[in-house]
């Protein structure tokens, strides 16, 4: 099975976020970046499928030069080769624009399966994977926790609300967006990093793949969340405090 995993590099969760002067995006200088977590789960799923059924895992990412470190990390974890769509203007492309770039990079590969994270940890739009399927004219399913290969195609487990799951079957090729937590992530190894040096990374220029079209959605303004301290300490003996807590949960929060 030939699998392409589309990965985004996002600011480190621990990174101290500042808003850039223009107020439309964060200040990227001095930030550390790492692999978008749902994408890491997509990669893990792809590697497990390859280990079980053979084939090839190709990782694909669009972004400036720094994206190379995330691609190398993916190669170190076991991907066979990488495609880097170099673009310094991702901020000017919306989800549709990015999906266009990815789809152009994917088409010549004609893979059996395309995996990507459910959403990104920075913008959280959750659209890129789904638009990608539309552009490639492929069936898709989102919020996937588990993928199983069958004779006819795939059987996948979707996460629904309130602890419900749904199992669906679909033919290949297909696009799946992967939910975090379905598997345990493997760790990068020293051997993997050394081996990754000899693996191929193909560089494609974004401008040549798909010209920048006027975005359909534009980011107007971003803001840091305001801090609100709403912790309440319930006084009294444990018994009194527990009674007060139940009272609040029942009548104020209405969850009991």
């Amino acid at each position: 099975m030939k699998i392409i995993v589309a990965i985004k590099q996002v600011p480190d969760r621990d990174a101290p976020i500042r808003i850039a002067a223009a107020g439309k995006w964060i200040e990227e200088s001095g930030l550390q970046f790492s692999m978008n977590e749902p994408d890491a789960y997509a990669l893990e799923e792809a590697l497990r499928l390859k280990e079980a059924h053979g084939g090839e895992v190709i990782v694909l990412s669009a972004g400036p030069e720094r994206v190379g470190t995330t691609l190398r990390e993916a190669l170190a974890k076991g991907a066979d080769r990488a495609i880097h769509v170099t673009a310094d203007d991702l901020g000017e492309r919306d989800a549709l624009g990015v999906a266009r770039l990815l789809s152009e990079a994917i088409k010549p590969e004609s893979p059996d399966l395309i995996l990507t994270g459910l959403q990104s940890e920075d913008l959280g739009l959750g659209q890129t994977g789904v638009i990608l399927a539309e552009l490639l004219n492929l069936p898709h399913a989102s919020l996937i926790l588990h993928v199983e290969k069958t004779d006819a195609g795939l059987k996948v487990k979707r996460e629904l609300e309130s602890g419900w799951f749904q199992e669906i079957e679909l033919p290949t090729p297909a696009v799946l967006t992967i939910q975090s937590g379905g598997n345990k992530l493997r760790y990068a190894t020293l051997m993997g990093i050394k081996r990754a040096k000899t693996k191929e990374t193909r560089v494609l220029n974004a401008a040549e793949l798909a010209p920048v079209a006027p975005p359909t959605a534009v980011l107007e303004k971003i803001a840091l969340p305001t801090k609100q301290r709403s912790t309440q300490i319930l006084p009294g003996t444990p018994k009194e405090a527990a009674a007060a807590l139940v009272e609040k949960l029942r009548f104020e929060v209405r969850v009991l």
Partner: peptide, 18 residues
């Protein structure tokens, strides 16, 4: 070489890597 597979170990490594 990645031969050691341990849920908590992998979690620790991933935590310290990121």
């Amino acid at each position: 070489t990645g031969a050691w597979e341990d849920e908590r170990g992998a979690k620790l490594f991933n935590q310290l890597e990121r």
